[in-house]
Design a protein around this nucleic acid. Structure first.
Length: 528
RNA sequence: GCGCCCGUAGCUCAAUUGGAUAGAGCAACGGACUUCGGAUCCGUAGGUUGUAGGUUCGACUCCUGUCGGGCGCACCA
């Protein structure tokens, strides 16, 4: 809809302009403040310029009227145009709000270490990533979703050791001495019990088996993580193992050396990441020849860029923000355009329960399991609330609040609107087929506004996706639901002379609600 | 100490990315057809956008300082 309007306005004005929605719908459906920016250039007042420009639209097909108010130019769409668009949308629900952006994007998210179950902090990035994935696909982007598995390095050894010691203590009943750093939490003891059953308790007798336990535990954890994700409707296209990439290290390192951005000092190999704004240069190879963690990301991003996507998105926890500049520097030194990499940071989530704050730490083991919260409040509510806040703001919420199954839970409110539409059709005994060709004309103000709101989904989606701010979509769904409830309370539908018109209008609202919810991984309810 | 993020109604958050009178929900108070489902709707109250300057036709939005909160500051991952 917006695209058609922009086209129509550009045809007449023959220059660039900003198209926005007026604060107050009574002004019109769209507006532009172009007269203000022209005022200086033309040495006339914005009001005069706006008046003159309005005259150009007198014979427009898609506009009912174009007016100038205090320097703004306001556009009101014609009923024919709105009705045609609604008819098309109802008949082509799957394609409604879709688009044909062809850019290819590699979207990497979650990528939590396979050393334990997902906690509530991971859920934020997971839900954001999955929703971007769904929306992007709908908008025609060629998106691939990917999970990077950190299965190399000392954490894997620590996982193996933790399971080994837990088994020794709990299964073999032998006193053990715990090191300073290990994975705490009951899941380690569960793993030890499982290992005892699957591999035999003798595995805890010899510490040569630690490596075996580490690999076994990693696979268990990946399965667990996949199942945690499946519980909130997330499935990845592919998993990439860090370990499996290391065979390419020599190639990647050669590229780095060719860039003249590496140097030796103190027996170590460094990259000059300060050249690209990093706080300090970084070590990629230690004195003993072992590559650092950064090396893993060098190979991984080399690998990513070789796959030739137009754009790359990484969703990271905000605690990794200091890592961005060194990875971008590395990408640049490998000979790629680091601007193609976009890092979205998902800020910390502070979870409360009855006012008590939880400290989340994977290492310490006293974190909140994502699966527990999902069991408590449900996938739908969790997804909706997490998407309702900008990803770069800190999010506080109290679990107890979710347990109230009433209107304070926005997903309830929206589902109720959707269910109402369904109920109204049942009550009237008519189907969408019966009313889809009725013409939407002479609607009252509430009806006209409701229709317009329902048709806004495409541009809300584009805006939400391009700005990576999905709270725009959740806001929209709440507002649209409110408009429907308001209309419902003020207008009798069944039995009214305009019954069929109203039903078509409701059908259109249903299309938008369903589509919007679907794209954030929530299935709209027909009954409450 | 340095870097990044945040600061908007009592609480949780929006604000078309520099545009018209800063808006919703929750909580509070007062109302609505013996109901096409009242799990809804309408109204009242609540603000010097942390704070002090600057940029311009115009600032919650951009710049500088300052205060407060979070995160990070490894050859760990």
């Amino acid at each position: 809809m917006k695209k058609r309007v922009i086209q129509a306005v550009r045809d007449e004005l023959q220059r660039e302009f900003i198209l926005e929605k007026p604060k107050d719908l009574s002004f019109g459906h769209y507006a532009t403040p172009i007269a203000f920016s022209l005022a200086k250039e033309l040495r006339k007042s914005p009001m005069v310029i706006a008046d003159e420009l309005c005259k150009k639209f007198e014979n427009s097909v898609i506009f009912k009227e174009v007016t100038s108010v205090k320097g703004y130019i306001n556009f009101k769409l014609s009923e024919d145009f709105l009705d045609e668009y609604a008819s098309w949308a109802i008949a082509n629900e799957k394609d409604f709000a879709s688009s044909d952006n062809n850019q290819s994007i590699l979207l990497e998210y979650v990528s939590a270490n396979p050393t334990g179950p997902l906690h509530i902090g991971h859920a934020r990035g997971a839900i954001l990533g999955d929703s971007l994935y769904r929306i992007g696909n709908h908008l025609g982007y060629k998106i691939t979703s990917e999970y990077y598995v950190n299965d190399a390095g000392s954490q894997m050894a620590m996982l193996g050791l933790s399971i080994f010691l837990a088994g020794k203590q709990n299964v073999l009943k032998i006193d053990v001495e715990w090191p300073e750093e290990f994975y705490r939490g009951e899941y380690i003891f569960d793993l030890a019990n499982d290992a005892s059953e699957e591999l035999g308790s003798s595995i805890f007798e010899d510490d040569k088996n630690i490596e075996k336990l580490s690999t076994w535990g990693k696979n268990k954890m990946i399965e667990l993580i996949k199942s945690n994700l499946a519980d909130i409707g997330i499935e990845f296209e592919q998993f990439v193992s860090e370990k499996s990439l290391y065979c390419d290290w020599d190639n990647s390192f050669k590229k780095l050396e060719n860039s003249d951005k590496t140097y030796q000092e103190g027996g170590k190999t460094w990259i000059r990441s300060t050249d690209l704004g990093d706080e300090k240069d970084r070590v990629v190879i230690r004195e003993d020849g072992r590559p650092t963690y950064l090396a893993g990301d060098v190979i991984y991003h080399d690998n990513k860029y070789q796959r030739g996507y137009d754009h790359y998105i990484n969703i990271w926890g905000a605690d990794h923000h200091g890592y961005i500049s060194r990875v971008k520097a590395a990408i640049n030194f490998l000979g790629y355009d680091e601007k193609k990499l976009e890092v979205i940071l998902a800020q910390m989530v502070a979870l409360l329960k009855g006012g008590e704050p939880y400290k989340m730490s994977k290492r310490a083991g006293n974190f909140i399991l994502m699966s527990d919260v999902v069991r408590d409040v449900g996938s739908d509510a969790l997804r909706f609330v997490f998407l309702s806040k900008k990803s770069d703001t800190h999010l506080d919420f109290d679990v107890d609040m979710f347990k109230q199954k009433d209107s304070s839970n926005p997903i309830f409110y929206i589902n109720y609107a959707h269910a109402r539409i369904n109920q109204i059709f049942n009550k009237s005994g008519k189907t969408v087929e019966d009313v889809k060709n009725v013409k939407l004309e002479n609607l009252n103000d509430d009806g006209a506004n409701l229709l317009y709101s329902a048709l806004l989904l495409p541009e809300v989606l584009e805006d939400a996706f391009e700005s990576r701010q999905l709270q725009k979509l959740t806001e929209y769904l709440k507002t649209l639901s409110a408009s429907l409830h308001k209309f419902y309370n003020e207008n009798r539908v069944v039995g009214d002379k305009d019954e069929e018109k109203f039903l078509k209008l409701f059908a259109m609202v249903g299309v938008s609600l369903r589509t919007g919810l679907n794209l954030i991984g929530i299935k709209a309810k027909d009954k409450m």
